[in-house]
């Protein structure tokens, strides 16, 4: 499997990352290198092997329903490029 320039452009657009043609040019072989490296896993025969969801055999832990968090608006907004009246303020987005 490999990716094309168009696919890289598409993925960048979905993630709202602006990329120049030069950057995309450079990324295509880099991504294909990564994909090729990971694809070596496909050489292992996994017929009849259950998919492994975690390396340690443990179950998903659930928590009790209790309010133990939140109420920290200043911290939440601290790194926002812009905040007004307790809201995050972002460039207007209307569908």
């Amino acid at each position: 499997m490999s990716v094309s320039k168009d696919q890289v452009r598409h993925i960048a657009k979905l993630a709202r990352i602006a990329m120049s043609d030069e950057e995309i040019e450079r990324l295509v072989p880099e991504l294909n290198g990564i994909i090729g490296w990971v694809e070596q896993l496909g050489e292992v025969n996994t017929d009849g092997v259950e998919p492994l969801t975690a390396v340690i055999d443990q179950k998903l832990r659930l928590r009790e329903d209790a309010v133990t968090d939140g109420n920290c608006r200043d911290e939440v907004l601290a790194n926002a490029p812009e905040a007004q009246h307790g809201f995050f303020a972002v460039p207007k987005v209307i569908e």
């Binding site: 812009e82 009246h85 809201f87 303020a89 972002v90 460039p91 207007k92 209307i94």
Partner: peptide, 11 residues
């Protein structure tokens, strides 16, 4: 919220 500010949306 889109109606609170002329150029910004509030989250």
């Amino acid at each position: 919220m889109h109606d609170q500010h002329p150029t910004m949306s509030y989250v």
